[in-house]
Amino acid sequence: MKIIACVKRVPLTDAQVKVGADGASIDPTGLVYSLSFYDELAVEEALKTKEKLGGEVTVLTLGASDASKELRECLAKGADNASILLDPAWAARDARSTAKALAARIVELGAELVFCGRVATDRDQSAVGTMLSSYLGWSCVTDVTKLELTATGGTAQRETEAGIETLAFSLPAVITCDKGLNEPRLAGLKGIMAAKKKTIDETKPLDVESAVKVLKVELPSARKAGRIVGEGAAAVPALMDALRNEAKVL
């Protein structure tokens, strides 16, 4: 089975963000990137699936050439191939143009199973995985915390506000991975050495114009300074008074 894990590099979650000079972008200077947290889960699930059902794993990203650093980390963990849709202006793409380019590449690669992260922790859209499934005409299950796959289909669990949902689906499928699904492995020395020798395939992505016009990017207004109302249990009446009479939330 041909398995693809779609991944994206994002700024580290502890990054301090600055607005770009145009007022409509994030200033990339000084940002340090790593694979989006949930994409690590997607790569792990792709590798586990290959170990169970056989096949080969390709990690796929759309981005600038420096994304090869993260792709090489995936190769070191055991991915067979890595493919990058080279677009230096990736940040100007919206979810639709990214999904269309990825879908076209997935068809070219002839895959029948695609893993994505639940969300990329930069744009926080949670949209590319589900959009892929619509463009491909495939099954899709999202936010998966438990998965059982056979060569033709599977069952998955996801957490919703109402409880844990169980879903049945057929292949081909797109599966988006949530925390709890697996514990991503670390790359071993042997894998790291082998990954250095592998070539990363570079192709040009489908050109799709963005359908979202960003007017402004701003930082949220800072919260006004609060105060310590006191120490220990003795401060409870002061807190209750503040919540009732000042904040008026009781």
């Binding site: 990054a15 963000v17 359908a211 990017v217």
Partner: peptide
């Protein structure tokens, strides 16, 4: 975006 570290104002052109 970025879990609330920034806010984007955007127009839909879809």
């Amino acid at each position: 975006i970025l879990a609330g570290k920034a806010l984007v104002t955007a127009q839909s052109q879809s």
